[in-house]
Design a protein around this nucleic acid. Structure first.
Lengths: 158, 158
DNA sequence: GTGTCTGCAAAGTCTTTGCACCATA
DNA sequence: TATGGTGCAAAGACTTTGCAGACAC
């Protein structure tokens, strides 16, 4: 039944037990917020959203949880150059593998997920080669493109 | 005469005049530091280095200059996840096109420049497709790999 | 019950801004 | 000399830490 989640027992429950971590109310709330959006939320964005339902949850807990989730590999942390970190769930229905296209003029961020065949081919070779050459175990990668969107290009030309 | 720079008139002199900028002592000093290293320097690293020769140059000027240089496209600004930005000259003899391999265990950063043929092919297609699909003018890209180096992998296993 | 987790407040770090003076072109 | 650049100090913004009380398992 695609599009419908098992509300009583989200897919992430098991992840915590395994690592000796506890699945608390704030952690569930934060994961819920992340799993329901496709935007690029900052820690404060998440805090404000969680705060609507759980006013007692503090910003500190949000930061601590995000750090934990990133360490567990459940979320990715991004830097789009505006001085605050952004977070995205690394898996789940809203999180199909994608990358970011960032406008250096207005800081708009576009998600894209095309060209994945070529990318996969390139990454597979690169990761294999890097692992061997530097004795590294590659866990993930980051690809971002920077440029000017149509509006900023026109603004600049004017 | 490779390896030897024209000290009296570095390659970047002309870049400033064109933009209406002035080539001042602090700016030259900062570019000199960047052009002589292959390390990933933070603003403070650069400040300390410049300070050895020009003790009157302040950290503020370093930040302002780095911002300008990044805007001019002469340097790249990186985030390796340790809370401070790192800077690298985008061109010049020490700056052959490369990417970074980051150990999430010890934060060590390795430069690599292999697999460039596959990469170029992938990037060419991606940039062309993205430009068309989103009406973006792609200026640059960022590729980073994350993983565990041999030492951190052994440490973790122990 | 025990070890983890949380909230609050305070501190820490990197980076930016205001302003008067200085220097390049 | 006119405009852009600089240094210092202070402020700003995001993130982390200390600690006592609370909670999941």
């Amino acid at each position: 039944m695609p599009g419908r989640r098992n509300v009583g027992s989200p897919w992430w429950h098991g992840r915590f037990r395994g690592g000796g971590y506890r699945l608390t109310v704030p952690r569930q709330a934060i994961l819920n917020v992340l799993s329901r959006t496709s935007r690029h939320l900052s820690a404060e964005d998440i805090y404000l959203e969680v705060h609507k339902v759980h006013p007692h949850v503090g910003l500190t807990t949000v930061y601590r949880t995000l750090e934990l989730l990133a360490e567990m590999g459940m979320i990715f942390k991004f830097d789009f150059g505006d001085g605050r970190a952004r977070y995205e769930l690394s898996e789940g229905p809203k999180s199909a593998h994608h990358h970011h296209l960032i406008c250096t003029g207005c800081r708009r961020v576009i998600d894209y997920s095309g060209f994945m065949d070529e990318e996969l081919e390139f990454l597979k070779r690169a990761e294999k080669g890097l692992a061997k050459k530097y004795d590294f175990e590659i866990k993930s990668h980051l690809i971002q493109f920077y440029g000017l969107c149509d509006k900023c290009r026109k603004k600049k030309a004017a």
